[in-house]
Design a protein around this nucleic acid. Structure first.
Length: 228
DNA sequence: ACCCAGGGTCATA
DNA sequence: TATGACCATGGG
């Protein structure tokens, strides 16, 4: 019986071969990454890009500027991301915390688990958003668990699928070992794959992971993933 | 018109 | 612990 680590690495290779490097997270600065992580909650990235662009255009992409904005004007800028009233509050809570901590440099010195606990204490930052921030803004070896990850690996029979967030994160992290570049690319590839599969629905009968389904004429079918 | 998206919180049972 | 309701725009 192959270990979980070998299965995961094999799946990673399939995804990487199929899609190549994803160059995540899209964003020029760590702060932009953090803002994006909050704004992308249950929302497509293309919607987040509009809001980020608006903030940038007005030179508001700083914790001080966002905090200085009243709820309503901020919500207007966040409008395309959906839940704009909720996200305006969340963003301001985050910015207040961020400034209170002294910004990026002091935070960068914190140990990962302490930083994670701090992030989770911010209203509106849950486990996935915190882990996005830890991995993509602070380069910490934290494996992000999202709905795609849960569905995909449950289907590939690597997990049951009903484990709680922390259990899954522990499972992936101990199987893969602390590896920031791997975690970075893996999560991005999982999201990419989900989009790709979604695009080809309902004929999603052929993907790089051989998730069931016949291959189209002329294509060489991949051998099925060894799930045992 | 319907479904879902790179979630999180809060109220119930 | 575990569901359900709620937040709300934009693209398929």
């Amino acid at each position: 019986m192959r270990g979980l680590d070998q299965k995961l690495h094999a799946i990673f290779e399939r995804l990487y071969d199929a899609y190549g490097p994803q160059c995540w997270w899209p964003g020029e600065t760590p702060f932009e990454v953090m803002v994006g992580a909050i704004l992308t909650q249950n929302t497509t990235w293309s919607n987040v890009e509009r809001a980020i662009a608006s903030l940038k255009a007005l030179n508001y992409l700083h914790a001080e500027a966002i905090l200085a904005l009243a709820d309503e004007p901020l919500a207007r800028l966040l409008r395309p991301t959906g839940y704009f009233n909720v996200k305006a509050r969340r963003l301001r809570c985050f910015c207040a915390w961020y400034l209170d901590q002294g910004g990026y440099e002091p935070l960068r010195g914190e140990k990962t688990e302490a930083l994670r606990a701090d992030l989770l204490a911010v209203q509106g930052i849950g486990p996935e958003t915190a882990d996005d921030i830890l991995l993509y803004a602070f380069r910490r070896p934290v494996f992000v668990i999202d709905a795609y990850t849960r569905r995909l690996f449950a289907r590939l029979e690597c997990i049951r699928g009903n484990e709680d967030y922390e259990a899954l994160r522990g499972l992936f992290e101990s199987a893969l070992g602390a590896d920031v570049p791997l975690y970075n690319e893996f999560h991005a590839l999982i999201v990419r794959h989900a989009k790709e599969v979604c695009k080809s629905r309902p004929t999603c009968d052929r993907c790089c992971l051989s998730l069931g389904c016949p291959s189209s004429a002329g294509a060489t079918p991949r051998p099925a993933m060894d799930a045992s």
